[in-house]
Design a protein around this nucleic acid. Sequence first.
DNA 1: CTGAAAGCGCTTACAG
DNA 2: CTGAAAGCGCTTACAG
Lengths: 336, 336
Amino acid sequence: MPTLEDVAKKAGVSTATVSKVLSNTPYFTEVTRAKVMQAVEEIGYVPHLAGRALSTGKTGIIAVVFPYVYDSLFTDPFVVYMLQGVEEESYAHGYNLLLSTPRLTSDGPDQQFIQLIHSGYLDGVIALDNVPLASVLEPVHKRDIACVAIGYHPTQYFIRSDDYSGGFQIMQHMLSSGHRRIGIITVPDATNFSMDHRLSGMQAAAEAIDLDFAAMPKVSGNYSIEGGMNATRVLLTEHPDLTALICLNDRMAIGAVQQARTMNRQLPDDLSIVGYDDIPTAASLVPSLTTIDQHAPELGRAAVRMLLQILDKRVVKPLTLPVHLVVRESTSFPKS
Amino acid sequence: MPTLEDVAKKAGVSTATVSKVLSNTPYFTEVTRAKVMQAVEEIGYVPHLAGRALSTGKTGIIAVVFPYVYDSLFTDPFVVYMLQGVEEESYAHGYNLLLSTPRLTSDGPDQQFIQLIHSGYLDGVIALDNVPLASVLEPVHKRDIACVAIGYHPTQYFIRSDDYSGGFQIMQHMLSSGHRRIGIITVPDATNFSMDHRLSGMQAAAEAIDLDFAAMPKVSGNYSIEGGMNATRVLLTEHPDLTALICLNDRMAIGAVQQARTMNRQLPDDLSIVGYDDIPTAASLVPSLTTIDQHAPELGRAAVRMLLQILDKRVVKPLTLPVHLVVRESTSFPKS
DNA sequence: CTGAAAGCGCTTACAG
DNA sequence: CTGAAAGCGCTTACAG
C-alpha cells in the first residue's frame, strides 16, 4: 500500500507538501499541485486513516448506538427506517458509520461499548436513548465525545419526536370521528419513555372533552405483531362494544387488524384501528393504516446534522420535531 | 485521555512493559503485572485504537457491505435479519461493525467506498454480493483485504444459501399437494442472482413430473408488498383458475395474501400461497405463511466465522447452507 | 524478566 | 511557496 512518502518521492517534493496539497491548503504553485496530483493518480494513493487519525485526532467515524435491550434495531422497522436517515446524511458528509449495539443492564452498557467509547475511534455518537433501564450516554459524556441523543434521557443535545402531540392528535382524531368506546394497546410499563408521552397526549385529548382516560381499557401488546393480536383478542373479548383501537405502534396495529378480521369485524366499519410510526408497511396494509408519521428518516438525518454542527463548534439547540396524522382506510366514523 | 506512558509512569515501568503485560505476554513477575494492572485500573486506561492500528495494521473493524441499489438494507427485512447474525457473531468476537452502503453503478461502487477500502481501516469485509450490476468485490480484492461474500459473484470465499434446493422444495411441496395451475410472482429480470437459482430449482421440480414450467404464468412483483399485490391482481384476473401462487420472497407473498383476500378468495382453500425467506413477520401473518427458511441470521454468523478464520490464516472452504421448507397455514390441497 | 529505540503514516507549527 | 522535524499512541524486534 502506497504511502505519502511514495507520493512525495515520485513528485519530487516533501511529504509535508503532499499532505498540504491534498488537504487543499492555498499557497502552492500550480506546478507543484499538478506534480503532486499526478503522482497521487499514478500511484493510486489513498490516505491511511489510522495515520491521519493519530495525528489529527479525527477519524471520520460516527457511531450509531442502538441498545440491544429489546432487540430494537433488528426487530423494529421504525428503528431501521430511522437508521436509513442516519446513513444517508452521514454518507452525504463523507462520514463512515459504525454500528454499535451495546447490551444494557441496570449497571449501564457493557464493557465492550465502554472500550469503544474510550478507544479514540469515534468523532461522535448518535444514540437511541429511550430506555429507562440505563443511559448509554454516561460513558460518552465522561469521555466528552460529541453526542446527539434521539430520546428522552436528559442530556445537552437531543432530537425528540413530539410524542405528546402525536398522542394528542390521534386521540383527537378518534374522538372527533365520534368514537367514545376506545381500547388502547400499550407496551409494558417503563420500557420506553416516548410511549409515556404518547399516553399523556392521549389523556389530555380525552380530558379536553371530559372523558375519563383511566377508564379506557388498556392491554399491553409488547411492541410486536403477535402482541397486538393477543391484546386485541383480550380487548374485544372483554369489551365487545369497543368501536376503536389505538395502538402505540404500527406493528401492534398490524396485529390488531389481523386479529379483528379473524374475529369477523369489518374494518373500519365495525372497528377503527390506528397505529403510530408510519413504518413503510403501514401504507401497503389492507386496509391501509391510519397512523402518526414520525418522519423516522428525518429524525435520523436531523441527528447527524446536529452532530456535525457540534463537531464544528457551532451553537446548537435541542430539537423536537413535529409529527403528522396520516388518515388512511383503517379508521372511519363508528357505524354501530 | 490517559496514554500508555501515563500508565508506565504511574507503575514505574517502561511503556514496553505495560504494552506487553496488557497483551498478556508471559515472562513477567507477578509483581510487575500487578503494578501495571493497578495503574491501569486507577487511571482508567483504555488503549487508543488508532495508535495500535498504526503499529499493528489491525483495527478490529469489520465492514458489512450492503450495496444500495435496491435500498436492500433498509427495505428488506431479510437483509436486516441477516445483519443481525453478522452483528451477533462480530460482537461475540470483540469486533466492531462498520456499515457500508456503497452506491453501485455499472462502473462499480462509488469513490467513497473505494477510499474506505484503501483506508487501512478494515480488517475484513463481509459483502452482500448478489447484484448482477457490478461486484463490490473488485476493489476489495485489488487491495487484498480479507473478504467473505454472501452471494453468487465468483470469488474465493463465499457463503451461499441453497436457493436451487429452496426453489425445488417449494415447487415440489405445491405439486405433491396436488396443485397444477400455479402462478409465480417473480422479480425483474437480472436484478438478483439468487432469484435465478430459485427459479431453476422450481423448474427442475416441475419438469421432474413432466410439467411445462415455462407455461406457468409469471408476473414480476418487484420485491415489495405492493408489488406482490399488483402481481396477484394481474395473475388472478388473467388466470382465475389458479390454485396456488409461489412468490420469490415473503414480502410479495404478504402482498399476495392481502390482495387475494380483497378478491374474495378463501385462504388456503381457494388459493395456496407460499413465500421465501421466513422473515420474522411470516409467522405472525394471518394465515401464517408457508415459506422457505433461509436461516438468515445463520448466514450472517457463518460469514463472520469464515472471515475470522481467513484472518487467522486457516484453510477455509466456501459454504452453501441448506434451507428448509416451513409449512404453515397459507397452503393446503386445492379444494376446487 | 525488562527497557531503549525505531517505526507505523500522517499533520502541523515553525523556519526559511 | 516549500521542507525538516517533531509528535500523535501504540508495538515489536533487539539487547541486556
